[in-house]
């Protein structure tokens, strides 16, 4: 446990700073796009989903040490499982909730 602190001591945490700025920019961009009504509905949706995916990547690479591991790479396995569930849930929800347009105006 001590080693986790000392391993990075001394070096300036560039990765964290860059990641922090990137994640702020991505968040602000999504908000701006929605609040400013600059694009049509479909474009807005696609773009904010893309921004969201980028956000996930930033978190994984800059903060969550995705590239480090000792022992079996369990985190990769779990990410894969998570990916499958996300596809099922998002894809499933779109399929389920796009029923009869008469209800959702």
């Amino acid at each position: 446990m001590e080693s986790t602190h000392s391993a990075h001591a001394g070096r300036f945490p560039w990765a964290h700073i860059v990641g922090y700025i990137l994640s702020l920019v991505l968040t602000a961009a999504a908000f701006w796009l929605v609040l400013a009504h600059k694009a049509g509905l479909a474009t807005t949706l696609v773009v904010i989903v893309l921004l969201g995916v980028l956000q996930i990547l930033v978190q994984l690479f800059f903060f969550m040490h995705i590239t480090e591991s000792d022992g079996p790479a369990w985190h990769t396995v779990m990410l894969l499982v998570g990916f499958l569930f996300v596809v099922a849930i998002v894809g499933g929800s779109i399929w389920i909730m796009s029923f009869g347009g008469q209800v959702v105006a």
Binding site: W95, I96, F99, G100, V103
Partner: peptide, 8 residues
């Protein structure tokens, strides 16, 4: 009973 399609 929400009434999603029969496939769903």
């Amino acid at each position: 009973t929400m009434g999603a399609s029969a496939d769903v």
